[in-house]
């Protein structure tokens, strides 16, 4: 079969004590499960804006997402594996995105497609969330405004690599985040403010208009 072990030394979240007692059977089983999962990820396209059009182009005839086992769009989050957040996420949509992520069963992953989803992009204003990683955990960020289909495919391949390196014994991967009871946020407020400092363009308007 040619089943060769993959190096697992660059697993970021692996607990070193958990893997010590693992048998050869467990690692083989991991490999088989991950191989199956990586090849049949069902995407949940959370398409909001321009990136959704490029996502559709990726799924259409020329770029053919079906080559990666992803042609089965799961528009219901309850049957989905990968949330592909394609497009900008305004504050009004933030609780919806959070709810959809909560509705997805484990194991689940998230691809943040495009600059707006990843960082707010060019929309540094009162209405747009400055990166969906302040609401839900993100596995792969795909840059671009919007990313070309090739870019999205590369991101999907990266996610498949990541899936192939998971270990069932590491249950921390499957932990759901709970919000901080005081602030209701998932990451500290200071971190959010720091991440969304204005960058580059002016956000001030003077009387002269300059």
């Amino acid at each position: 079969m040619g089943l060769t072990a993959r190096p697992s030394d660059n697993l970021a979240r692996q607990d070193p004590s958990a893997g010590a007692g693992e048998s050869w059977v467990a690692t083989r089983l991991d490999f088989l499960v991950n191989w199956g999962r990586a090849g049949s990820l069902w995407p949940m396209p959370f398409g909001t804006a321009c990136c959704a059009i490029e996502f559709m182009a990726t799924a259409a005839s020329r770029f053919d997402l079906a080559r990666f086992g992803m042609e089965r769009m799961s528009f219901s989050p309850r049957q989905a594996d990968v949330l592909i957040c394609a497009g900008r996420v305004p504050f009004k949509l933030a609780p919806v995105l959070r709810r959809i992520w909560q509705q997805m069963p484990q194991p689940k992953w998230c691809i943040s497609m495009g600059a707006c989803a990843s960082s707010g992009g060019m929309f540094d204003n009162y209405a747009v969330v400055q990166g969906i990683d302040t609401i839900i955990p993100v596995d792969v960020y795909v840059p671009g405004c919007p990313p070309r289909p090739e870019g999205l495919l590369y991101g999907i391949l990266m996610l498949q690599e990541k899936v192939k390196r998971e270990r069932m014994s590491d249950t921390s991967l499957r932990n759901e985040m709970d919000p901080d009871p005081k602030s209701g946020l998932y990451i500290p407020a200071q971190a959010i403010d720091e991440l969304s400092e204005p960058f580059g363009n002016s956000v001030h308007q003077t009387r002269s208009g300059l």
Binding site: A49, G87, P90, V96, N125, A127, V128, Q205
Partner: peptide, 13 residues
Amino acid sequence: GYLHCGFEKIGEY
């Protein structure tokens, strides 16, 4: 309004 991104406001800047 779920995709309100403040285009018109940004245009003034």
